[in-house]
């Protein structure tokens, strides 16, 4: 079904990392600051339940809720499962149980890890556990290092938790949540063909069978007609600057002197312009209609930039539909 020569599809590791900076509401702030101070706070809901971890709004009525109470640091497992192969970022590095724990004085349960050195056979719903605090605490759910079995027993505080102001010195007002996800990126058939041709210093587009437009770079489908594009068409190597801008801000990690020109370039035979950097000419002499060609440097798999060919400028009529 594929008219193009078959290639092994390219793939490459792709890491997506993002630190989210999040502000806290007053209840979340009191709760997380409390953890830093080895104090566990809940919030009283409108139906009288004590919610731990606490929410800013009532889960039933959506009212703001602010009545904080201090609950116990031991509690009861309401459900659990065994995690034999901990993943990156999880609370413990050795096998542990995930648990939902209802702390003494709370009516809802908190998710965390249970360090159970005696293995899964030592864990059961209803077992008593207590908080093991992290040695370094900064106001985050991870200030609880994990839970551990509570072998002492009989340390239950009064059933009704005591009111708490929620006031601490130097309260935590925000958290930075780091996230990292690892992917294997595969560009698919069309872009693999395009990238492999580029590495051989050829620019290959794909022609739509319906509207005959040649897409560069190709993505395997004509976005206008919604049909597959399979006919391979070599375009360029030279092309015409259809429009451009002068970049005056140095991008992080990019070793290019500013100012430089970034342009839309319609390669000869292409049905739309691609973009690239213009070099080999002072930035203030770049113009619409300038004829350019790609420059490969070293072992680069794609053009480093485009430079003037020295041909006369292309007349506006020849590229006005490609702007």
């Amino acid at each position: 079904m594929n008219t193009a020569p078959s290639h092994e599809v390219l793939s490459a590791p792709l890491v997506v990392e993002f630190p989210f900076t999040r502000s806290l509401g007053p209840v979340q702030s009191a709760f997380l600051t409390g953890l830093r101070e080895r104090t566990v706070l809940g919030v009283r809901a409108s139906d009288g339940r004590t919610l731990v971890p606490p929410t800013e709004y009532d889960p039933v009525t959506a009212e703001e809720i602010r009545d904080l109470v201090e609950v116990g640091q031991a509690g009861t497992v309401t459900t659990w499962c065994w995690n034999g192969s901990p993943r990156r970022g999880q609370p413990l590095r050795h096998p542990f149980a995930w648990v939902l724990v209802r702390l003494d004085g709370a009516d809802t349960a908190l998710l965390h890890a249970l360090d159970a050195p005696d293995g899964p056979d030592s864990v059961r719903t209803g077992m008593r556990v207590r908080i093991r605090w992290a040695e370094e605490r900064g106001g985050a759910i991870t200030d609880i290092a994990c839970f551990e079995p509570d072998r002492e027993g009989g340390t239950r505080p009064p059933a009704r938790p005591a009111p708490h102001t929620g006031e601490f010195t130097d309260p935590v007002t925000g958290i930075v949540a780091h996230a990292r996800l690892d992917y294997t990126y595969t560009p698919g058939r069309a872009q693999t063909r395009y990238l492999e041709a580029l590495a051989e210093h050829r620019t290959m587009g794909e022609r739509c069978p319906r509207c005959r437009k040649v897409y560069v770079p190709p993505r395997g489908a004509c976005p206008t007609c919604g049909v597959p594009t399979r006919e391979q068409v070599e375009v360029g190597p030279a092309g015409t600057v259809t429009t451009f801008c002068v970049v005056n801000i140095k991008a992080k990690g990019l070793d290019i002197e500013v100012p430089y020109v970034y342009a839309h370039i319609a390669l000869d035979g292409a049905g739309l312009a691609l973009h690239g950097r213009i070099g080999g000419i002072p930035y203030d002499q770049v113009r619409m209609g300038l004829r350019v060609e790609p420059v490969w440097t070293g072992s680069g798999r794609y053009p480093d930039h485009y430079r003037p060919t020295g041909e006369p400028d292309a007349p506006y009529q020849t590229y006005k539909e490609l702007l």
């Binding site: 971890p53 459900t79 995930w98 890890a113 958290i175």
Partner: peptide
């Protein structure tokens, strides 16, 4: 993102808590 995501509880673990 405040109480759960920092612990990285995977989808299989959460389903297992529900099954238990």
């Amino acid at each position: 993102p405040y109480y759960l995501a920092p612990l990285w509880p995977d989808s299989v673990a959460l389903a297992a808590l529900q099954a238990r």
